[in-house]
Computed example of a mutant assay.
Amino acid sequence: MSEKLKVSTDDLHTAGTGLRTVATELEGLDKLMDAYDRRTVGHQLLHERLQDFSDGWDDNRKKMIEEIQGLGKLAKEAGKAYTEVDIALYDALVGKGKQK
Rank of each mutant, 00 (worst) to 15 (best):
T24Y: 08
K100Q: 11
R20W: 08
H43I: 09
E67S: 15
D34R: 13
V22G: 04
D91F: 04
D30N: 13
E48H: 01
V7K: 06
D55L: 11
L19G: 03
G72F: 09
D37F: 06
L89D: 12
D11A: 14
T14G: 02
D30A: 12
H13Q: 03
D11T: 09
D55K: 11
A81Y: 04
E25R: 14
E25H: 15
L74A: 14
A92N: 03
A23G: 01
M33V: 09
I87R: 04
L45R: 01
V85L: 09
R49Q: 10
G70E: 14
G42E: 05
R61S: 06
D34Y: 12
E3D: 11
N60K: 13
A92W: 12
V7C: 05
M1D: 02
L5R: 01
G79W: 00
R61L: 07
L5S: 05
V85T: 06
H43W: 15
D58W: 00
T40L: 11
D37Q: 03
T40E: 08
L45Y: 03
I68P: 02
H13E: 00
D91V: 02
D10E: 04
G95F: 07
L29A: 05
D30C: 06
K6P: 00
T40G: 07
L32E: 09
A78F: 03
T21P: 01
T21K: 13
G72N: 08
T83E: 02
W57T: 03
K62P: 10
M33C: 07
D34W: 13
Y90G: 15
E48F: 02
V85F: 06
E67W: 15
D37N: 07
Y36F: 15
K80T: 04
G16N: 02
V22D: 05
G95H: 09
D55W: 04
K62M: 10
L45G: 00
F53I: 02
M33L: 14
R61W: 10
Y36T: 06
F53E: 03
L50T: 01
V85A: 08
A15T: 09
D11Y: 11
V85D: 01
V94P: 00
A92P: 00
K62T: 14
G95L: 12
G56H: 02
K76N: 01
D34A: 14
E84S: 08
D55R: 10
R61A: 05
Y36C: 02
R61P: 07
T9R: 07
V85N: 04
G56R: 04
A75G: 05
E25P: 00
G70A: 15
R49W: 12
K96M: 05
L89Q: 13
T21R: 13
D37K: 05
